[in-house]
Lab assay of single mutants.
Amino acid sequence: MAEQVALSRTQVCGILREELFQGDAFHQSDTHIFIIMGASGDLAKKKIYPTIWWLFRDGLLPENTFIVGYARSRLTVADIRKQSEPFFKATPEEKLKLEDFFARNSYVAGQYDDAASYQRLNSHMNALHLGSQANRLFYLALPPTVYEAVTKNIHESCMSQIGWNRIIVEKPFGRDLQSSDRLSNHISSLFREDQIYRIDHYLGKEMVQNLMVLRFANRIFGPIWNRDNIACVILTFKEPFGTEGRGGYFDEFGIIRDVMQNHLLQMLCLVAMEKPASTNSDDVRDEKVKVLKCISEVQANNVVLGQYVGNPDGEGEATKGYLDDPTVPRGSTTATFAAVVLYVENERWDGVPFILRCGKALNERKAEVRLQFHDVAGDIFHQQCKRNELVIRVQPNEAVYTKMMTKKPGMFFNPEESELDLTYGNRYKNVKLPDAYERLILDVFCGSQMHFVRSDELREAWRIFTPLLHQIELEKPKPIPYIYGSRGPTEADELMKRVGFQYEGTYKWVNP
């Protein structure tokens, strides 16, 4: 592979701008107003304001973009700056750019259920340069409990009458099928589907988006991507930290609602779906819905739930269990780990287990898709061969690698495990991989909904998990304890083995 010439960040961002501006969906010269509902909250200060700053800094926003914060707290732009700027990672050389960014910011205080507050917000936006005809993007960085009041008031008082209007809704989209349907029906009564952007930030990850290209742009994968060759698929999300004093919020939802029903299920769809007619948003989402419709409700015998306990040999936070978090209700049975087996009941995947695993306070930070292939028929190497695996590593250190057998150097035919490896950090030294939120917010500006969740996708996802969630809430089974920093409950490994996964433990990928 030829040595790549190092590029400056300015040059890299210039390439990104060229890609972005050559499309006809990006209205570079139009006025846009980006409204952050819930501007005083954690999500706004840690993710949304920093993301908008990065896009502005790199010249990736339309030229005439204004940012308006809205929340109940009586704040000023200076207050917003004070709480969000520490997350910007701005350099001293960017000081003038930073001043320009905050000059485009404003803030309006108001209630979430008060019509007069929204009329005041609308008047404020109209007073901005060309504000009355601007395109408006409303980001709901809010708890779902206020979605209905907020969307109703936005629709009645704050819509642009000339430009387009788009609304970005953060997960969780309800707690179960019934609450999700209620919320979807409410929002759909106010906005068209092409105006609604239900954001799952995992769909903005580079390697998640790469799944489609790997599958449908490489001839070698087509013939082997089926039940005849693939023994099982494992989708993993692991965090090495616990709730760390923020367990009160987590306890309301648990690990299945927080990660599995959305992030992991979306990745499953991209692995299992048929080739779409095109890369058009609805063509892709149509195929994802077909996959979900082929999955039956989760069966309790295919589920393992766990909850982390303190590690007596650990240090600091590792010595504390979930129930030691003062914000967690006493005696909570909320799971911090889950392993679930699903089956896609169609011709391509009949009988292939899709194993979804996620948890907190585990032994490493990792998100990946792992396809394990069947054993080689007619073994001539005296059971020395391990199964081939194709691994798409989402985070950290984005990579695609194939675990395969090669001859060990020497005189004899002794096979050993090795890999074919594409590590993004080595291959793409001159490429700026956008943060997931950067990519998705740019998608909203461009009107691309491919990486957002459609209402029928959402409904099918909740259909699969709601009976299990209701059973857990009714019966309150005690989750299996696992030690902070471990791989999780051993019962999860036993479940995976029972459905056909072979864990060798003899080879570990190392970032080159």
Rank of each mutant, 00 (worst) to 15 (best):
E170A: 01
C232E: 06
R215Y: 02
L60D: 04
V233L: 05
E99V: 12
Y249M: 03
R198E: 03
F216M: 02
F101M: 03
N185K: 11
G69H: 09
S123W: 13
I220R: 00
K205D: 00
S157G: 13
F88K: 05
N126D: 12
I234K: 09
N126R: 14
V169H: 06
L61G: 00
G131W: 07
R219F: 10
N210P: 02
I230M: 08
Q11M: 06
E244C: 15
R215M: 02
R192Y: 09
W164D: 04
C158G: 11
F241A: 07
D181G: 12
Q11D: 15
I224A: 05
P240M: 09
E206N: 05
R175C: 09
T151I: 06
L128A: 11
D114H: 06
R192D: 15
S106I: 14
D200Y: 02
P50D: 01
F250M: 07
A71M: 03
S160R: 08
D100V: 09
I162K: 07
M37K: 06
K89S: 11
F66V: 08
A149P: 09
L16R: 11
S189G: 14
T243E: 03
E170I: 01
H32L: 06
I199N: 09
M207P: 05
S157H: 11
N229F: 06
K95M: 08
L140E: 02
Y118H: 09
R219Q: 07
T145H: 09
H124K: 10
F87V: 11
T243H: 03
C232V: 05
G69K: 00
F21Y: 15
T236G: 10
V208K: 01
A44G: 05
R120E: 09
F191K: 01
G38H: 02
E252F: 14
K45L: 13
E252M: 10
Q195R: 03
R74H: 13
R166K: 10
Q161F: 12
R175T: 07
G248N: 07
K171S: 02
F250R: 00
N229L: 05
C13S: 15
H27I: 07
E206C: 09
S40E: 00
I230C: 10
T145S: 09
L214G: 05
I52E: 00
T10P: 08
R120D: 13
I196V: 12
D251E: 09
K152M: 14
K171D: 00
S180G: 07
K95F: 09
E19H: 15
P172E: 00
R74W: 15
Y112K: 03
L121K: 04
Q28E: 03
Q119F: 09
F88M: 12
N218C: 07
R257V: 04
Y139I: 03
N126W: 07
N64A: 07
I196W: 04
D100Q: 14
R215P: 05
L55Q: 11
Y202I: 02
F101T: 02
N210Q: 03
M212F: 05
F241D: 04
G110R: 03
P240T: 10
Q195Y: 06
V213W: 05
T236R: 03
M159K: 14
I168Q: 04
A44K: 01
T145K: 05
E170P: 01
L214F: 12
S188F: 09
A90E: 06
Y197E: 00
H155G: 05
D30Q: 14
G204S: 01
K89Y: 12
R198D: 04
A109E: 09
L203T: 05
G23M: 13
P240D: 14
Q178V: 13
D100G: 12
S132R: 11
A231E: 07
V233M: 05
M212E: 00
T236N: 11
N185D: 15
Q83S: 15
N185F: 06
F87A: 06
I256K: 02
T65C: 13
S117C: 09
N210W: 01
R182T: 12
N226K: 08
R219N: 09
N105T: 10
E148V: 13
L43F: 01
N210L: 04
I33A: 15
M159T: 12
R257K: 08
N64F: 12
K205A: 05
L142T: 04
T51C: 09
R120N: 14
K152C: 06
I52C: 12
E170T: 00
K89R: 13
N122K: 10
D194P: 05
Q83M: 04
I52M: 07
F221R: 02
T151Q: 06
V150R: 01
Q28M: 04
N64V: 07
P172D: 01
I33C: 06
H129Y: 13
Y49F: 08
F237G: 07
S184P: 01
L142M: 08
E193W: 01
R57K: 06
I52V: 15
Q22L: 07
N126M: 07
V77F: 10
E193F: 01
E19R: 15
I35E: 02
V233R: 01
R74P: 10
P143L: 05
I33R: 07
D79L: 09
G163Y: 10
R81L: 14
I80D: 02
L61Q: 03
I220T: 10
G23V: 11
L130S: 10
M125Y: 06
R257E: 03
D79A: 14
I52W: 04
E85L: 07
L235V: 10
S160M: 07
R81C: 14
G242A: 07
K82S: 12
I196R: 00
F237E: 04
R81H: 06
R136S: 09
L211P: 02
P172H: 00
K47I: 00
A78T: 14
P86M: 12
G41Y: 01
A25S: 10
Q22Y: 08
E244M: 15
M207C: 07
T10V: 13
S123I: 11
E239I: 04
Y107W: 11
P62I: 04
A116R: 11
R198L: 01
S179F: 03
L177V: 13
R192A: 10
S29W: 12
Y70V: 11
H124Q: 11
N218Q: 00
R198G: 01
T65Y: 05
G174S: 07
Q133R: 12
K46I: 05
D181V: 08
W54N: 14
E94S: 03
E206K: 04
A141V: 03
F138E: 00
A141N: 00
K238E: 02
F253P: 01
R17I: 08
H186A: 13
D100T: 12
R120M: 08
